[in-house]
Design a protein around this nucleic acid. Structure first.
Lengths: 248, 248
DNA sequence: CGCCCGGTTGACTATGGTCAATACGTGTGG
DNA sequence: CCACACGTATTGACCATAGTCAACCGGGCG
């Protein structure tokens, strides 16, 4: 694993993800215990946080940035399995090795907890376990929504679904109440999109062009996307993107 | 929902899934509480247990039989999301409606817990929550393995993976120690296999024939499959079926 | 300046989907 | 008992979608 940079500590009470991360339900005392076993790590965009099979001596919350979860076949095929945004959790209690490749997409700061004491706290403090259960159930839902997309959607529908999901995350307001005009910043290269959707990058590029030619989206530079009418985009998804859907 | 048949109660202590289900870690006192809120339901093969969007007043453990979890698009496309075998859990605490279609594949008996009191117990008894967390993490792993299969595998690899996974479940012994000759009972029709793998039933049928012609499997009737050498089957999976893999 | 990276586009191919005919096994009714 | 229908599976012919291989574009940076 590449050498990460270390940050100064930050008090949990001032943490930007305090109310959404695995520690969301912890009281002050529990927070104090977490302070004792936590440390920060920062990874630059592109750096690998862990390869599948690597020993992971910590579990962690993403504090800042974007990371991705994926798996690589022996022959080089890649499938991304999840996008990790601030407050998302990395690692599995009870497992010593990472089951997946974890890579920083943008610069990432992790709040890491040493695994052993974290597992002990998990047993002793129901608040922590409760929140982790909630988050895991959410991730399970997200994984199953992705199974739907991967198994049964056409290339065009996959692209539209991905854009709709990102739009939904960036504009958290409920859907019908939203101004249909939306602009969003793609955190992903075409290749990353293809890894996510089970396509080739050429197909992704072609379908992006097709959506542009059909007026569903406009491109501003490579990464900035304008969606003039989100409802028209949704209409291209094949129709199961639910209002409260979110990656992970 | 179709009218289910009711069974006589069974004591938890004699329950066949006692040591693997959500109640696995409960002590005698907790088991007593569960006895008070549980009831059995039986569904015949083919019956629907819940449609996506239906209110679900209970959560449940599968005691006997096989059920499947899936989702249907407006235009009729179907994707199966999980196979539910004895000890698997149905429903999500905190959610009133089923997010998925749940259907009995073979005759199924459920041990149902009324949702509200179950949620209360979940908060008060760490043993229950602990086990549910473990099970949910396992399901998440399984869902991600399926994402890999759906996103990046060829039809032949998908079929081989499905067979390998079923073989692994039916013969729980660790792999290298097992006699490579194995015979297994498919609980799925060709159509169900296609729903699972994101293929058409014709492609499933063709690839089954191809595997047969290549001597990887032998068919005995429609549902009984002989695998003369499990290692050769594994070699056809595209190579990520891990030794401790299990559906759900 | 020229290289590299990410992206786009084109020509061709291959994998798997569609539509259709046929086979097989089982349960029902004449 | 046989005829028939129905559900499940197999196979073939053809086609469409997405993959492969390759050329080319444009911006940023050494």
């Amino acid at each position: 694993m590449a050498a990460p940079m270390f940050n100064l500590d930050v008090k949990c009470s001032q943490c930007p993800i305090r109310h959404r991360a695995v520690c969301a339900k912890c009281d002050d005392e529990e927070l104090g215990e977490l302070e004792d076993i936590k440390f920060y790590r920062t990874y630059e965009a592109g750096q690998t946080i862990a390869w599948a099979g690597d020993e992971l001596t910590f579990v962690a919350s993403v504090v800042r940035g974007v990371a991705k979860l994926g798996k690589t076949f022996e022959d080089g095929r890649i499938q991304m399995l999840g996008l990790l945004l601030p407050s998302d959790f990395i690692g599995r209690p009870g497992r010593e090795e990472s089951a997946y490749d974890v890579t920083a997409v943008k610069d990432v700061t992790l709040c890491c907890f040493r695994r052993k004491p974290f597992e002990t706290m998990l047993r002793d403090s129901p608040h922590l376990a409760e929140r982790l259960l909630e988050m895991t159930l959410d991730e399970l839902d997200a994984a199953r929504e992705w199974m739907l997309i991967l198994g049964r959607k056409t290339a065009r529908e996959k692209i539209a679904s991905l854009l709709a999901i990102i739009a939904r995350r960036e504009h958290a307001a409920p859907f019908s109440a939203t101004d249909p005009y939306i602009t969003l910043e793609l955190p992903l290269t075409r290749e990353a999109m293809s890894d996510y959707l089970g396509l080739t990058l050429e197909t992704v590029s072609r379908q992006m062009s097709a959506l542009r030619q059909d007026g569903i989206i406009q491109l501003e530079g490579k990464r900035r996307i304008i969606v003039p009418d989100l409802n028209r985009l949704i209409a291209q998804t094949g129709g199961d993107i639910s209002a409260d859907f979110a990656i992970q």
